[in-house]
Design a protein around this nucleic acid. Structure first.
Length: 284
DNA sequence: CGCAGGCCCTGGTAGC
DNA sequence: TGCTACCAGGGCCTGC
């Protein structure tokens, strides 16, 4: 559920509250919350204590906090992860996985994650990226995103266009919600072969992805329930603007035809059957 | 190498 | 009421 706009809202909150502060105590309450960290939870905590956070950065749906040690705290929210800023002594949240207290005795940072698809690790900060996220492509809101390279790569793929949009090594930050919204905007079916897109069509799709990500970010993100929240526990309101995603049987805002929900990659895809008709030669 | 599919996980809800 | 089945879905991993 947290895609680029939601993760960016979290990044801004963590940056505001945590950058410049020194870690005093780390409590790991669930071993699964620490992922791909060589020394496990114990080492994770040990290497963080005494370190100062120098920034909060994001690539796609990943966050990382460079530290004064030259390492970085890398995090992914998965499906249900939250980073919350709360007063010390606040009772433990039901799915509290890790807790960070700071030397100034101020607000704590907490990682809460119901489904435990998210995770944290400490990794060498590297340049420009920690090694664990070097395979993640730039996102369309990144000033250095290469539009021409994306269009070319998309048209080289031999897959359905929605699969391509969800491939974080091609373009990052896009998940099921914003893929469906962007495809609806440019009237493309999710199974349209990516190689069959003309260059202008691929450019229009990229523009739609940018628009929908930007609008959602301006709205503070999308939320259907209390799972996705900013660091203060508040939800965004972009869900009121969704045209296709989650709108099964509701009228298409463009033509009134009921939006259809279909199985896609063991999940769901939403489209307007009239605006986004099936391609002759689908690629799933 | 590129691509497809399985799996991880918990809570809410629909249906019987 | 209480049980089961299903759904939410990002990314790692494996196999073809």
């Amino acid at each position: 559920m947290p895609e680029l706009p939601e993760v960016e809202v979290v990044r801004q909150g963590v940056d505001r509250w945590v950058t410049g502060r020194t870690v005093a105590e780390v409590e790991v309450r669930h071993p699964r919350a620490i992922r791909r960290h060589a020394g496990g939870a114990e080492d994770f905590a040990a290497v963080l204590v005494g370190r100062t956070v120098t920034a909060v950065r994001r690539r796609g749906k990943y966050l990382w906090l460079p530290l004064d040690s030259g390492d970085a705290l890398v995090g992914h929210l998965g499906m249900s992860g939250q980073l919350l800023v709360v007063s010390p002594g606040t009772p433990a949240e039901t799915h509290l996985r890790a807790r960070f207290a700071f030397a100034d005795g101020g607000q704590e940072l907490r990682f809460v994650d119901q489904r435990t698809f998210g995770g944290l690790a400490v990794d060498p900060a590297g340049a420009p990226l920690p090694s664990s996220i070097r395979h993640i492509a730039r996102d369309p809101l990144d000033p250095e995103f290469d539009d021409d390279a994306f269009v070319a790569a998309l048209r080289r793929r031999r897959t359905g266009v929605k699969r391509a949009l969800l491939d974080q090594t091609l373009v990052s930050g896009v998940g099921n919600i914003y893929a469906d919204e962007a495809l609806w905007r440019v009237r493309l079916h999710w199974a349209r072969p990516s190689e069959s897109l003309t260059r202008p069509a691929a450019r229009a799709l990229l523009a739609a992805v940018r628009e929908v990500l930007g609008s959602a970010l301006a709205a503070g993100g999308t939320s259907f329930d209390s799972l996705y929240v900013n660091v203060n526990g508040e939800s965004g309101y972009f869900d009121r603007s969704l045209a296709a995603y989650g709108q099964g049987d509701r009228p298409c805002p463009r033509c009134g035809t009921p939006i259809r929900r279909e199985p896609f990659m063991n999940r769901s895809s939403y489209r307007c059957p009239r605006c986004q008709p099936g391609p002759r030669r689908p690629r799933r």
